[in-house]
């Protein structure tokens, strides 16, 4: 499970505090959603947890099972079971999607002391998983995310997630830029991965994604803190009344 205690984070180059004491626990098997207005620190939280440069943790801790996340390199966090689905998946011209996937899968297996997958084994698994996400052979061959539509990019993120089998999945605004059908497809992909050993942290602006990926717990984030935690009904409340009332209520 993911455990965050009193996390304070500032930008490395600027004297700007973004997270001001985040406390959050996501137990195994649960799906938690974080909602909140623009600039509340949701994406920063996802980047700090996955180890992106440019942020400085000034106080607090974050762990995934018995791993102290904040002490690890991004690739070590990944091997420990953390996965971040990007809001804007990166295009990597000249590197085939399959090559990238196989490199990532085998790098993680190697880091965990497991045998690397042979080319045949890998292809069998990837074809199977790609099929359920409606990712065709052409998309697998093309360079990573190059020329992909918004929906294709997000499906590709979910395919990576399915191949890497992480324990903790963070979805950073996975619904952004998706039409209704694409969102349903992505949500189905995520739901298929739900299991008692795997947790999800779904970051979103809108309740609509949560119609498809049903959360156990919803957190509202504002100004660098979690200001309210509740059940799925909290998301509906936000959808109906906006953040204004909630923010006023907390003061």
């Amino acid at each position: 499970m993911l455990n965050i205690k009193n996390l304070h984070v500032k930008l490395e180059d600027e004297d700007k505090q973004i997270l001001k004491g985040v406390d959050l626990t996501v137990p195994a098997g649960e799906v938690h959603a974080i909602m909140g207005p623009n600039g509340s620190g949701k994406s920063t939280l996802s980047y700090v947890l996955s180890g992106r440069d440019g942020y400085e943790v000034t106080e607090g801790e974050a762990s995934l099972y018995d791993h102290d996340l904040l002490d690890m390199e991004p690739e070590e966090r990944a091997a420990a079971g953390l996965f971040l689905a990007f809001q804007y998946p990166v295009e990597i011209p000249g590197v085939g999607n399959l090559t990238f996937l196989r490199t990532a899968v085998n790098a993680q297996r190697k880091a965990r002391g497991e045998d690397e997958l042979s080319s045949g084994e890998f292809l069998k698994v990837v074809r199977e998983k790609a099929k359920t996400l409606q990712i065709d052979a052409d998309m697998l061959k093309r360079p990573v995310n190059v020329g992909f539509s918004g929906g294709e990019k997000k499906r590709n993120e979910i395919l990576q997630m399915a191949m890497l089998e992480p324990k903790m999945c963070i979805l950073d605004e996975t619904d952004s830029g998706l039409d209704v059908d694409a969102m349903r497809l992505v949500a189905e992909g995520v739901n298929a991965l739900r299991s008692p050993e795997r947790s999800f942290l779904v970051i979103t602006h809108y309740q609509r994604l949560l119609d498809h990926i049903k959360p156990d717990v919803v957190h509202i984030m504002s100004n660098g803190r979690i200001i309210k935690t509740g059940g799925p009904e909290l998301a509906l409340e936000v959808e109906k009344n906006g953040y204004g009332d909630l923010l006023a209520e907390v003061g």
């Binding site: 180890g51 390199e73 690739e75 990007f86 990597i92 990238f100 990532a104």
Partner: peptide, 19 residues
């Protein structure tokens, strides 16, 4: 992006150089 998928830094550099 590459490192967050578990690709070690040195190997990520190789992929980006080839790219």
């Amino acid at each position: 992006y590459l490192r967050s998928r578990g690709v070690p830094k040195e190997q990520a550099v190789v992929l980006l150089v080839l790219s």
